[in-house]
Computed example of a mutant assay.
Amino acid sequence: MGSVGGHTDGTTGERRQLINVAYRLLGSVSEAEDAVQDAYARWYGLPPGRQKEIASPGAWLTTVTSRICLDLLGSARARRERYVGAWLPEPLPDRTEWDGTGAADPADQIVLDESVAMAFLVVLESMTPAERVAFVLHDVFRYPFAEIAAVLDRTPAACKQLASSARRRVGTTRIPARAIDRADMVRRVKEAWEAKDITALVALLDPGAVMTADGGGLAGAALHPVEGAARIAQYMLAIADRAPGLELLERSVNGVPGLVARRSGVVLTVAAFDVSDDLVTRIWVVRNPEKLRPWARED
Rank of each mutant, 00 (worst) to 15 (best):
S3W: 05
H7T: 15
T8E: 12
T11A: 01
T12E: 15
G13E: 06
E14C: 08
R15N: 05
V21Q: 05
Y23P: 03
L25W: 07
G27I: 09
V29G: 01
S30M: 04
E31Y: 03
E31T: 11
A32S: 14
D34G: 11
Q37K: 14
A39T: 08
A39H: 06
R42G: 11
W43I: 02
P47G: 13
R50Y: 08
E53V: 14
G58A: 11
L61R: 00
T62K: 11
T63R: 15
T65C: 09
S66Q: 10
I68P: 01
C69Y: 00
C69N: 03
D71L: 13
G74P: 00
S75E: 01
R77D: 05
A78Q: 11
R79P: 03
R79D: 12
R80Y: 08
R82T: 12
G85E: 14
W87P: 01
E90F: 10
G102C: 02
G102R: 03
A107Q: 03
V111T: 14
A119K: 11
L121T: 12
L121S: 10
V122L: 04
L124P: 02
S126M: 08
P129S: 13
E131R: 07
V133F: 08
V133K: 03
F135T: 09
V136K: 09
R142S: 04
Y143L: 04
P144E: 05
F145Y: 14
I148N: 02
I148P: 00
A149R: 15
D153K: 07
T155M: 00
T155S: 08
P156A: 01
P156E: 05
A157S: 09
A157F: 01
C159L: 02
C159M: 06
C159Y: 01
A166F: 09
V170D: 01
T173S: 12
T173K: 15
P176D: 08
A177T: 09
R178T: 13
I180A: 15
R182C: 09
A183P: 00
A183D: 02
V189E: 02
K190I: 02
E191D: 00
A192N: 06
E194S: 02
E194F: 01
A195Q: 10
I198A: 14
I198K: 15
A200R: 12
D206Q: 04
D206A: 08
G208R: 06
A209R: 07
A209L: 06
A209F: 00
V210F: 01
M211R: 07
T212Y: 02
D214T: 02
G215I: 06
G216C: 05
G216H: 06
G217V: 07
A219L: 00
A222V: 09
L223H: 06
P225F: 03
V226N: 10
G228F: 14
A229S: 15
A229I: 10
A238H: 09
I239E: 13
R242Q: 15
A243K: 11
L246R: 15
L249A: 05
S252M: 14
N254T: 11
G255Q: 12
G255P: 06
V256S: 07
V256G: 05
P257V: 13
L259I: 10
V260M: 10
G265A: 04
L268E: 01
V270F: 04
A271I: 11
A271P: 00
F273P: 05
V275I: 09
S276M: 07
T281P: 00
R282N: 08
W284K: 01
R287A: 09
N288G: 10
P289F: 13
E290Q: 14
K291M: 08
R293M: 13
R297L: 03
D299N: 04
